[in-house]
Write a protein that binds this DNA or RNA. Structure first.
Lengths: 179, 179
DNA sequence: GTCTATATTTCGATAGAC
DNA sequence: GTCTATCGAAATATAGAC
């Protein structure tokens, strides 16, 4: 995961992975059928984390309110699994290739596909969809901008600050509260 | 640029580039000394665009107000050069490797380095720095989230919507206007 | 479960003709 | 400025012993 994050999946060889683990190259093939399977295993970790959020998206219209709730859930997981999300984010091309090769697997419904679908759903106002995309981008930016600019900041502090920003994006459109 | 964006720099071979251009592989080497030089040429396009913004960062403290002004400038360029920014964003690992190999070139001061420096400057409040990172992330998210979810939206419309969101992030902390 | 040794492919890059 | 032909290196993956 560290090598894929720092150098990229394609720029990381099985030789480097073996050296990092202190074993030989063929030893890796006892545990993983291919280099892609290693990436797939890492992806499945993230997929498991997203299953709950995925279920909440099933079928229903994605309102800004639902989006904020989902995003708060996802944000918690991003903070708890920063490295895993960063690896995923920095290897988008390799991840897409992975999905292209396994399109047959119908059971694998991806959170990312659903989010993309929500963002491109023309029945929602464009302004709302842009807010959704920006809020997700803001979360990624706060956690991962320039590699990991805030890696030394305690997760809880960062979580709280980013949560405030994200809330501002998806909620500041509403009328002032009557209170 | 398209191949690097879709497949990633490392997953794109000189053979594929040649085929896309309708020429042979050695013909490319007449124009570029190496595959890395092609990426470098694309990077320099972005570098030129960022020179003005870079100059405004020289030496002075980066306030939220300055940040918003810079970000608006950068946002205009992102809208005008969406593909170039997207290619850059999706090949961060390759870009960093490029910079590592040319560290000797002192004249090459990068906008990204400066932004990173501003985000990690401990003399600024953490809350402000997180807002900066989030606002930049929001801009990227709005333009590039999930590849290019809003590629069919006219640039001006998207620019305006994202500008509003970004302004909200870096400005909503201030006191209500006395008007 | 790990090793040494190796098969096979593909890559980036070059030689040299035109 | 572009081509055909090819080099050497490095990659993924496998064979087979232990």
């Amino acid at each position: 995961m560290d090598l894929f994050t720092d150098q990229g999946f394609d720029a990381t060889s099985m030789r480097e992975i073996a050296e990092r683990l202190g074993i030989s190259k063929p030893a890796i093939y006892y545990h993983f059928a291919s280099k892609e399977e290693i990436l797939m295993a890492l992806h499945m970790r993230l997929h498991q984390l997203g299953k709950a959020a995925l279920a909440r998206l099933a079928g229903q219209t994605v309102t800004l309110q639902l989006w904020e709730s989902l995003l708060n859930e996802v944000l918690d997981q991003m903070v708890a699994q920063r490295k895993l999300f960063l690896m995923h984010e920095r290897n988008q091309a390799a991840m897409e290739k992975l999905h292209r090769l396994r399109e047959h697997d119908q059971s694998h419904e991806d959170l990312e596909q659903r989010l993309r679908h929500a963002l491109t759903d023309p029945s929602l106002p464009l302004g709302d969809r842009v807010r959704m995309a920006c809020s997700l981008g803001a979360a990624f930016g706060g956690l991962f901008m320039f590699g990991n600019a805030f890696e030394d900041v305690p997760g809880a502090d960062l979580r709280s600050l980013i949560g405030g920003v994200v809330h501002g994006i998806v909620a500041d459109h509403s009328q002032p509260s009557p209170s």
